[in-house]
Every structure is written in structure tokens, then in C-alpha cells.
Amino acid sequence: MTMSLKDRVAQAAGAAEEPQPEQTSTDIATRDDRLKWLNGHRTYFTDALPRHVDKAHFTAVALAQLPKLKNCTNQSIMTALLACARFGLEPDGRQAAIVPYKNTATFQPMYEGYIELMYRHPRVDSVHFNWIREKDAWDYTPSEPSPRDFYHKPRVDLSEEERGPVILAYAFAWIDGRRSQVIILNRSQAEKIRDKYSKSYAKAEREGSKDSTWHTDFDAMWAKSGVRRLVKVVPTSTELTELLQADDDADDLSTAPAVIRGTVVVREDQPDEGEQDTPAADWPQTAQPGSAAPEGDDSEAGDEG
């Protein structure tokens, strides 16, 4: 039956009067407010980026993380983004991740982030990380001279599933034309590192929340544990040492500092961009990867983890 124009108008009017879900409206408003706030403060983290990182791309990646951080405070989100910018790492889940712990957004470097900082040292030619699967051809004989001590040939004729489960993670670097020691880590060793050193894992176990990164992405933490061991055999830098310390501080959520060295924190009551020309006078100068520490800062870098 064809409806008359009058009936269609009445139907449309009735539909317009139907109440919309309040939660959806609230979520959209919260998201829009967060986008506005972050865009208004974006220069605080983009100005900290090293010159080789594209600011527009970094901002786009940062904005894409907001949905999962909807319960986190603006200040903790900005602090985490400043940490990413401080080290020149994108918060894409590969170089670095911003992990929500209740209402706190926490900066967490990933294994590709460590590799990125290793590459920046002029003596490092290349850095390699890979997985060995059950059916791969491989051999490791520590008594043999480099590079004959290690061999890995993946089964390229098979899919990852057909190659079997992962049994080892390994990493090495080429430095001044010579290969470094090969770091090899099996699953059991990764679990021991987790159980001995990760405070966030222990806390999640005690609380029964099972929400630490060791719980949600074990392989990523396994990979990072192997690459972190490689840090001990490659030429180090201030940034790499500070990244290790920031990583350890982030894992120890009860004592993690509000400010990671070389960054500043945007206070909740800080005016939006355009309302003041310069940051508050008591904020520390922002340092960029590869630069010296701000003048007058004679604090020591954190120990290796």
C-alpha cells in the first residue's frame, strides 16, 4: 500500500522524536572532546619529534590510538605521546605502544623500537630479528667463529602454520662490518624473564585481571626480551639507555615517574594552543633523539635492564 505524503511526513516526524541511545551520544561527545583537546596540544609532542619523523603521520597514528584510551586521563595520554616523540617512535604497536592500565595511558617500547634506536648509532650497520619454527633448518655452535657459529634457513616452501610452532627467537647486529654475538631465547627463558622481572605481570596475576602485555601479547614481549638482551652487545647511546629505563619504569606502575627524562607533561589546566605563546617557565627543555641532554641536566641515565 502506497503511503500518502501526509502519512510519510507524520511518520518522519515521529521517528525524529524517538529518543536516541544516550550512551552513543555520550561516546561521540567524549571522542570529539578528546580529539579537540589532543589537536589543541599536538605541538607539545610534535615539536619533540626528531627531524626524520613526519609530524603529520605521527599525529595521525596518535589519533588512531584514542578509541582504546577512552577511559584514560588526558594528562597520561599526553605524557605517553611525549615519551614516544622523545624517542622518535611511532605509537603503532610495533615501534611503541600506548597501553591503558585502568585510567592511565602508559608508554611501552616494543622490539622494533629498540631496533630503530640501535640503527641510529653510526657504528651499527644492520640489526636482525627473526623466529625459528619447528621445521626450519638451523644450527647454533657457540665454539665456532662468527659467522659460522649460527645458521638459520626458514622453510620458504611451507606456510608459517606448516613450518610448525615457534621454538626460538633470535637477534644479532652487524657492527663495523662484523657480526655481533647471536642472542637466542626460547619460550621457557622468556617465561623466566617474565616471572622474575615483570611487575605488571605479577600485579595482573595477583589481581586476576590478566591484562598485562605479557598476558595479552606474549610473543611481542618474548621478542622484546630477546632484543633487549642484544642491547648489551651493541654500541649503546644515551637514548637507548634511557629507553631501557623508561621501559622498566613503565612496567613498575606503582613507581613510574610522571615525567620521562627529556619530556614535559601537559597539565590538565594548561591552556590550549594559541592561548599562550610559550610553555610555562618551569618546564624542562625538550631533548630530541641524538641530541645532548639539556644544559644543566647532569643526571645519570638509567642502568640497563
Rank of each mutant, 00 (worst) to 15 (best):
Q181A: 09
N130M: 03
P142W: 00
A96C: 07
R51M: 11
W174Q: 13
R163E: 01
T216S: 10
T236Q: 11
T213P: 09
P145S: 04
E116M: 04
A80T: 11
E112F: 08
D247F: 11
A258I: 09
A281E: 11
L69K: 02
A105F: 01
D269F: 05
L244W: 11
F58L: 04
D211I: 06
L240Y: 00
T286G: 06
M78N: 04
D195T: 12
N130R: 06
I132P: 00
E17G: 05
Y197F: 15
D211E: 07
K68L: 05
E22V: 13
E90D: 05
Q189P: 04
Y170W: 05
M78R: 03
Q189T: 10
D47T: 12
T26Q: 15
L240D: 00
K192R: 13
V182H: 03
D269P: 04
V61F: 01
P91E: 01
T46W: 10
R178M: 10
L185D: 07
P279V: 09
S237I: 01
T241L: 14
R178A: 12
E207N: 13
K224C: 02
S25K: 15
L243N: 06
T278A: 14
E268Q: 14
P284A: 10
E207D: 15
A202T: 08
F218V: 07
A281H: 08
P67C: 08
V234L: 06
Y151W: 09
I98T: 06
A246T: 10
F58T: 05
E160D: 09
L89T: 03
I260A: 11
A292Q: 14
Y119S: 04
V231N: 08
W131G: 00
V233C: 07
A16F: 05
V233A: 10
T278P: 00
G274A: 00
D149I: 00
L244V: 10
A48V: 10
H57N: 13
M1Y: 14
C72G: 04
D176W: 00
Q11T: 07
S146N: 08
F45N: 06
A293C: 05
P257S: 07
P122E: 00
K102Q: 06
K36G: 10
W222P: 09
F150L: 02
E160H: 05
A48K: 13
T43C: 03
G113Y: 12
V9E: 09
K210H: 08
N130D: 12
S225I: 10
D54C: 12
F107K: 11
T263Y: 04
L63V: 15
P100F: 08
A12F: 09
L5C: 12
L82W: 01
P21E: 11
R8V: 13
S188Q: 14
T30H: 15
P294Q: 03
D297N: 07
V53Q: 08
I28K: 09
G93A: 04
